[in-house]
């Protein structure tokens, strides 16, 4: 899967299901501070990642992921690893 596809799937989910304002979706946006993603959204993200990208996230792996750009990279790295 190409990175463009990953970005498209993630952004689509953030806009349509978590209802994040499209204008806030930027590479350097902080997941919590800029996008307002709370713990409940995080559950959604964990499930959506599993459904769309086929791997399970865990707390340790996500500890260094703070921005949207890091999140795209994280998904890409996990897909490449598989």
């Amino acid at each position: 899967m190409k990175k463009d596809q990953i970005i498209s799937i993630v952004n689509d989910f953030l806009i349509n299901e978590i209802e994040i304002d499209e204008t806030k979706i930027k590479n350097d946006a902080h997941l919590k501070n800029d996008l307002g993603i709370d713990s409940l959204d995080f559950v959604d993200i964990v499930v959506i990642v599993e459904k769309n990208f086929g791997f399970k996230m865990n707390a340790e792996e996500m500890s260094g992921v703070n921005t949207l750009s890091q999140f795209y990279d994280f998904i890409e790295s996990k897909i490449v690893d598989r």
């Binding site: 713990s39 995080f42 559950v43 964990v46 499930v47 399970k56 865990n58 707390a59 996500m62």
Partner: peptide, 11 residues
């Protein structure tokens, strides 16, 4: 605070 509970309930 580290949200680990979310991963546990998902699992």
């Amino acid at each position: 605070d580290d949200l680990s509970h979310l991963f546990i309930i998902n699992e």
